[in-house]
Design a protein around this nucleic acid. Structure first.
Length: 486
DNA sequence: TTTTGAGTTGTTCGA
DNA sequence: GTCGAACAACTCAAA
């Protein structure tokens, strides 16, 4: 915990980053408690993240989330200032303009953000500008969870067991009702001028129907899930054809709700943390903690195989296969449904993420980093830590990763988790008339069935771009060789 | 230091 | 249709 801010009339800058909320926002609360005028700012910084500049779908979300945050701040009697450019320069300018003597923020854990923040902290302090940073994004700070030997955990189960020990009573902060403004006008960009929304009109059409970005939308989504669905989470979470998951990932990524708020709400719900569904759900929050901890301790997780023996692997340069995967035209309906759900809604069900990732890596033998890039650009919940950890997990190159012989069968996964084929029919409409028996493998259906369903393979819907059995055997032998190549 | 038990999510094959 | 075994060691974390 940082010390309280000394009394003064000089304003405090509250720098919003991945914490676009008023409730349970420790940095904001610190500023409020100082009694000083508050200058809330969001900075669109496309330079600091380098190659990991925010992707298209995330920008759509950001636009709406900032609009919501701006409204909430306005209701509290203040104005959210928008600035664009390198954060360091923007903050210096804002400090000069406002006479602020203190800057507060909640911590980020991505390597680029950490380097930026550390340098800024040093620089600002040398100029007598005080800086306070807080934990607003994780249940437990990554440096708090260590093995008995003092090392970071590389296996989830012991990590989560230990992390939970660090959680005392979780009591989220209430949203401040009033945010005193500083005197005088402070210049702000117009959100619309940032052009965060896609220019291709049909691109994000489905996003708005699916999502309500912002703190209110996040709170509604969380209570709906916890009140009505969490008890069946264990059974429903693997079914992309039904609404079984929490859908909280983008809200969590942008910090519209904090994991502490979620933890507290789950703990207070009827069945509480004793219910199997609640335990399962909280362990997913635990995976988010684990991924952030991994990235904090091993920043190279973003770009390099966590297990070096994968560095020898010869990835395919099959650009055509990559494009067919991206467009949802692999000829495997379950895979294609997932990729099209991603494109049309900015999100994909977790079960299907594993299947499509396995297909790209194992069946097509395309480098997991190509998939990581695509997800980064197209997911509204794109999160550097979760994305890198997830892709490396499927590839088998990560921490606590899947064994090489775990190759998802896109047909049987579809039959198991989309048993009626409703998910496929929703996102692959050209297969809508296929009978359930054949919907996950239309190429195997008799001609008469295909004709009746008005499916002309190779024309209205592609034939499989690889044969499952062949691709599986090829992957098994290729990944098996990694052992000897190490 | 050495030992020991354990480790998100699967598939296929043969009895 | 159902069930168990094989798939492959390897590394991690704690005692």
């Amino acid at each position: 915990m940082s010390a309280a801010i000394p009394a003064s009339t000089a304003p405090v800058i509250v720098w919003f980053r991945q914490d676009l909320r008023l409730a349970d926002n420790p940095a904001l609360m610190c500023a409020v408690e100082s009694g000083r005028p508050i200058v809330p700012v969001y900075i669109l910084d496309d330079e600091t993240p380098g190659r990991w500049k925010m992707g298209g779908a995330s920008r759509w979300w950001l636009h709406h989330s900032l609009a919501a945050l701006g409204d909430a701040i306005k209701s509290a009697g203040n104005t959210l200032i928008l600035r664009r450019g390198p954060a360091r320069e923007c903050l210096h300018t804002l400090i000069e303009e406002t006479g602020a003597t203190h800057v507060v923020w909640n911590r980020c854990y991505e390597p680029q953000a950490r380097h930026r923040d550390e340098a800024l902290k040093t620089e600002l302090k040398s100029r007598d500008i005080a800086v306070s940073s807080f934990n607003g994004g994780l249940l437990v700070e990554p440096w708090q969870v260590k093995t008995k030997a003092g090392d970071p955990y590389k296996v989830f189960t012991p990590f989560w067991r230990e992390a939970r020990q660090h959680l005392g009573a979780v009591d989220p902060l209430k949203a401040p009702t009033s945010l005193p403004a500083s005197d005088g006008d402070i210049a702000s960009d117009d959100l619309d001028d940032w052009a965060l929304l896609p220019t291709v009109p049909n691109c994000a059409q489905g996003f708005g129907e699916r999502w309500t970005p912002g703190e209110t939308g996040a709170r509604d989504a969380a209570s709906e899930f916890i009140d009505a669905r969490i008890n069946s989470y264990s059974d429903s979470r693997d079914r992309p054809d039904i609404n079984g998951t929490s859908s909280l990932s983008p809200h969590l990524h942008f910090g519209e709700v904090s994991p502490r708020q979620i933890w507290s709400a789950v703990s207070h719900a009827c069945d509480g943390v004793r219910s199997q569904g609640a335990q399962k759900f909280l362990s997913e929050i635990g995976w988010r903690e684990f991924a952030h901890s991994l990235l904090f301790h091993f920043p190279e997780l973003l770009e390099e195989n966590f297990q070096a023996k994968f560095n020898h692997f010869q990835w395919s340069k099959d650009d055509a296969g990559l494009v067919e995967w991206q467009q949802g035209k692999t000829g495997y309906p379950f895979v294609d449904a997932g990729m099209r759900q991603l494109w049309s809604t900015g999100w994909m069900h977790n079960r299907v993420r594993m299947v499509v990732a396995s297909f790209l890596i194992k069946h097509l033998q395309i480098d997991w980093r190509k998939g990581q890039d695509w997800f980064w650009d197209t997911l509204v919940d794109a999160d550097l830590a979760n994305n890198a950890a997830g892709w490396q997990w499927v590839a088998g190159s990560g921490a606590d990763a899947a064994p090489y012989f775990r190759i998802f069968n896109p047909i049987s996964q579809g039959e198991k988790f989309d048993p009626q084929g409703d998910y496929v029919r929703r996102f692959v409409p050209e297969l809508a008339r296929m009978p359930t028996k054949w919907i996950h493998q239309p190429w195997a259906a008799p001609d008469s069935v295909l004709r009746a369903a008005r499916v002309d393979l190779g024309t209205t819907y592609p034939r499989p771009i690889v044969d499952h059995k062949t691709a599986r055997e090829r992957a098994l032998s290729a990944f098996k060789d990694l052992k000897s190549a190490a």
